[in-house]
């Protein structure tokens, strides 16, 4: 018998009020694929669980007035995959999310949970950063927006204030010739934690790169936005010299851990290699978009 309280508010206002009012360690529950594992192992002992999956803003996928998308923080990977257009516009964001775990995990795992869990290796985060997605956050003091790259504060930590809930991600409208991609390096072919993860989003106009963003995961305490890599390719026709310079910028941005999955030298080298592969996929897609 536990003394946990389970709440499943139907509105965002109720959720914010209940989450803020819950004394002690309250936790938000999205898909539970991190939270339930952490509760079982004793790592997290919430007094109150606030399930946000009955709240429309957290579970909706909508096209915004300016031609972008808004995706609820608690939308599961399998649900986003079934959306008729999201994955055509943002294939890299979708493939990052869809790489999380197995079919069963996909039935539950959300981008909001992946980001708020705060793992530097979260597979959906680099592509979200590359996409320039903005997180909408609701709390006792109202609603605010934060760029996705500004949400993580370190392993297991976010910049959400006490009582704040991540509501949704907003994706900008895409000019013609834009696309994205995500690749991760894992020792196995499935069901493993990224040693390096790279998200690239770019726009090509007549073969010239006019906009680019690069997100790099699992090589530092938080997922990184690598400005140097984007700057090295913007304005170029993605020639070899520009790509080498951008890859070097990715390796230079690394500040990784040394563990059984990958040494510092390995992760740093792979970051550059994987960037090149991801860029090639994103560019090929952008050429068709």
């Amino acid at each position: 018998m536990s003394d946990i309280r389970y709440l499943a508010p139907q509105t965002l206002d109720d959720a914010v009020a209940q989450y803020a009012a819950a004394a002690g360690a309250a936790r938000i529950l999205a898909g539970g694929t991190d939270l339930l594992v952490q509760m079982r192992s004793g790592l997290k002992k919430p007094s109150t669980i606030v399930d946000v999956k009955k709240i429309p803003e957290l579970t909706a996928i909508e096209e915004t007035a300016d031609g972008g998308f808004r995706v609820g923080a608690a939308v599961a990977g399998a649900v986003l995959e079934e959306h008729p257009t999201f994955g055509k516009v943002w294939p890299g964001v979708l493939e990052g999310l869809n790489l999380i775990g197995s079919t069963q995990i996909q039935g539950r795992a959300s981008m909001g949970g992946n980001l708020c869990n705060g793992s530097p290796a979260g597979d959906s985060v680099p592509a979200l950063v590359a996409a320039g997605a903005v997180a909408t956050i609701a709390g006792p003091d109202g609603t605010r927006e934060l760029k996705v790259e500004d949400v993580p504060a370190g392993p297991g930590k976010t910049n959400l204030k006490p009582g704040e809930i991540l509501v949704s991600f907003t994706f900008p409208a895409r000019p013609k010739g834009s696309s994205d991609a995500y690749l991760r390096m894992i020792p196995r072919t499935e069901m493993d934690i990224a040693v390096v993860g790279v998200g690239v989003s770019l726009t090509l106009e007549n073969g010239t790169c006019t906009a680019a963003r690069v997100g790099l995961g699992a090589v530092a305490p938080t997922v990184l936005l690598v400005h140097g890599a984007a700057e090295a390719i913007i304005g170029t026709k993605l020639d070899d010299a520009a790509i080498e310079k951008a890859a070097a910028a990715c390796s230079a941005a690394c500040n990784p851990i040394d563990d059984k999955r990958g040494t510092i030298a390995y992760r740093t080298k792979v970051a550059g290699v994987l960037f090149k592969r991801t860029l090639a996929i994103a560019a090929e897609r952008a050429g068709r978009a």
Binding site: A8, G32, L36, D51, A76, T103, G107
Partner: peptide, 20 residues
């Protein structure tokens, strides 16, 4: 493994209260 509303999930990672 079970399905909830037709979606395959691990029943060990779903709270019973969520099934309502």
């Amino acid at each position: 493994s079970i399905t909830i509303d037709g979606r395959l999930v691990c029943s060990c990672l779903v709270l019973a209260a969520e099934a309502d």
